[in-house]
């Protein structure tokens, strides 16, 4: 990754677009503190991720491409563990609120291993928002979901955008167009375009995406 500079305002939803291997997941992992960048800096809510990692990480929630689920735990036990890891003070309140938001009430005592892919994805999302973070980072949150689950997940993410700042990656343009206020396009590890989803020139996202990724192709 080189020359990537992103900024996210409060209550904004930013879509990260790019071909496979463009560096979307790597960028998100660096933002979430899972990977350490060789150079450059990342700040979350004013706290630098390299020098004040605890303060910065308290304000972020991360759902990687593979949800980090302990399959031998029940949904409730897992979410309580996630909440305690993030030093939530009112665990019971946060648990009830998150269960309601993610529609997990009916499966709260089930083992995660026994849940369908859609529900597992929701549990993954729930662990990322249980501590009401400033920034929610979602890596391909809708991949592998069926159309009904897809619609629900989109609704959830849009709802998240009201209370949190959200960065999500996707290679589905329609999805980004439907959910995001701004887009950033990555190509071969570089940022090639950043701007609002609805462009002033009236060009649709697909045209801009193809233009941006073609310009720098060898």
């Amino acid at each position: 990754m080189q020359d990537v500079s992103l900024e996210l305002g409060r209550g904004e939803v930013l879509g990260l677009l790019g071909h496979n291997g463009a560096g979307k997941s790597t960028t998100l992992q660096m933002l979430a503190g899972v990977l350490r960048p060789d150079s450059g800096s990342i700040a979350i809510g004013g706290a630098d991720l390299a020098t004040q990692p605890e303060r910065a990480k308290r304000q972020l929630g991360f759902l990687p491409e593979t949800p980090p689920l302990y399959r031998d735990m029940t949904v409730d036990a897992y979410l309580i563990f996630a909440a305690r890891l993030r030093q939530v003070t009112d665990v019971a309140g946060a648990l009830a609120e998150t269960r309601r938001r993610c529609g997990l009430e009916s499966v709260s005592n089930k083992l995660i291993a026994h849940l369908s892919k859609g529900y597992q994805q929701r549990v993954g999302l729930a662990q990322a928002i249980i501590h009401a973070p400033l920034v929610v980072i979602l890596d391909e949150p809708t991949v592998g979901l069926d159309p009904a689950q897809l619609r629900e997940m989109r609704g959830l993410i849009r709802e998240l955008g009201d209370a949190h700042s959200v960065i999500l990656s996707s290679h589905m343009l329609a999805e980004v167009e439907a959910m995001c206020d701004r887009v950033a396009i990555l190509h071969r590890g570089r940022l090639v375009h950043a701007g609002p989803t609805a462009d002033a020139d009236g060009l649709d996202l697909e045209t801009r995406f193809l233009q941006a990724t073609a310009e720098t192709a060898p």
Binding site: A32, G33, V34, K57, F62, T66, P68, L69, A82, Q127
Partner: peptide
């Protein structure tokens, strides 16, 4: 292997 370390690494844990 299960990529569950992302939860721990993105949490405020040293």
């Amino acid at each position: 292997r299960n990529q569950t370390d992302a939860l721990l690494l993105s949490s405020p844990v040293t």
